[in-house]
Write a protein that binds this DNA or RNA. Structure first.
Lengths: 198, 198
DNA sequence: CGTTCAAGAAAGGAATCACTTTCTAACCAG
DNA sequence: CTGGTTAGAAAGTGATTCCTTTCTTGAACG
């Protein structure tokens, strides 16, 4: 009778384990409530801890949100495919990026423009560069260079706009729809738009 | 001595004139401060009026923001060009859209995702449809149909993805950079990407 | 085992901000 | 000119929320 069945052994988290839980809670709050409605208390409650724990790590709400965005980005790395053909690599990479980044751009962009870090002296462009990780989709250069070496494309003769095209369109669709692209759309981008241009 | 020189005749605005000024102030505040940092007072001060005037028109902050977004969208209509060639029409339309909508998509999307209307029962998709005006870029069908009639393209044989391509890319760049596209970029989209595909 | 550190609970201070209320006077219709 | 409407000024209320402080106790480390 001393320990209730409804009280499931209060474990106490530490270090990386705790920090990941805090940042994940922050991200979930961002997705569900949005930046404006995210409060330190709501994050603490979701993470089953108290606000003091948050303030021990981040000086204010903006810092916490920024860290949560970066954590979410880094927790879902996009794998580098190697299928042997440019078409296969592109389909695989775009699919992986689409799934890993679904929602990320929109939430991050929304937070960046809805007031995040306005008074830290960062320009909107700086905030955006930071949350976007200053990279667009990783590994793009790699798969193009491999295709160049195999003789599939001639990097000297293909305009940069063409090389960016598939990734720009995937990013665009992610921003518009907030969910991963349908496989048919990815195939359309590769087969109807990109490949005819190279 | 009764009327100071520093007090430049207090005129009192009414009706449409006043309402436009209020909504313009709301939009400017949205751009500069973002949704989270926009306050009814900041809008009132910017419009040189008082909060009561705002509340006489809109029941709450969300309604004001929504009206400001719609006002901004409707106040900058994109003109329908008619240059005689598909290439000319596209360049003109993309340039006009780029300038009219610079910033609009990003600000509107950010407001939509940063908490706007979360508790009115609208889904994010509904909010987005409303602020985007349920249209992407107007006039697109028109210029394509004219080109079809002139025999420049065959609408039966061109995939829809190709027709959307220029507008998707312009929207993408606007979301990323928040400013009108450089003319060279627009020419690149038309000449290096779109025209080779049709 | 004993020491140290931080997790977690709780309560509250201070500031912000959505929204209201009241009042005066400028504008408009007749 | 007269009366009704509403712009605009000013002050205030109540709720929210950022952030701090204090205290107890579970966990890590030697």
């Amino acid at each position: 009778m001393a320990t209730e069945a409804s009280e499931p052994v209060r474990r106490r988290r530490h270090g990386k384990e705790l920090e990941s839980a805090l940042l994940a809670a922050g991200w979930d709050e961002l997705v569900e409530a949005g930046y404006a409605r995210l409060t330190m208390e709501s994050v603490a409650v979701r993470a089953r801890t108290s606000e003091a724990v948050l303030y021990r790590r981040w000086a204010n709400k903006d810092q916490l949100v920024l860290a949560a965005i970066e954590h979410q980005r880094d927790a879902n790395p996009v794998a580098l495919p190697d299928t042997g053909t440019l078409r296969g690599d592109l389909l695989a990479l775009l699919t992986a990026a689409s799934e890993a980044l679904a929602g990320f751009f929109a939430i991050a962009a929304a937070a960046a423009f809805s007031g995040l870090l306005v008074d830290t002296g960062m320009t909107p462009a700086q905030v955006r560069a930071r949350v976007m990780g200053d990279q667009r989709v990783p590994h793009t250069r790699t798969i193009y260079q491999r295709a160049h070496r195999r003789g599939e494309i001639d990097l000297e003769r293909v305009p940069a706009a063409v090389l960016d095209l598939p990734f720009d369109l995937v990013r665009h669709d992610l921003l518009m729809d907030l969910e991963p692209l349908k496989p048919a759309r990815i195939r359309s981008i590769v087969d109807e738009l990109f490949l005819p241009l190279v």
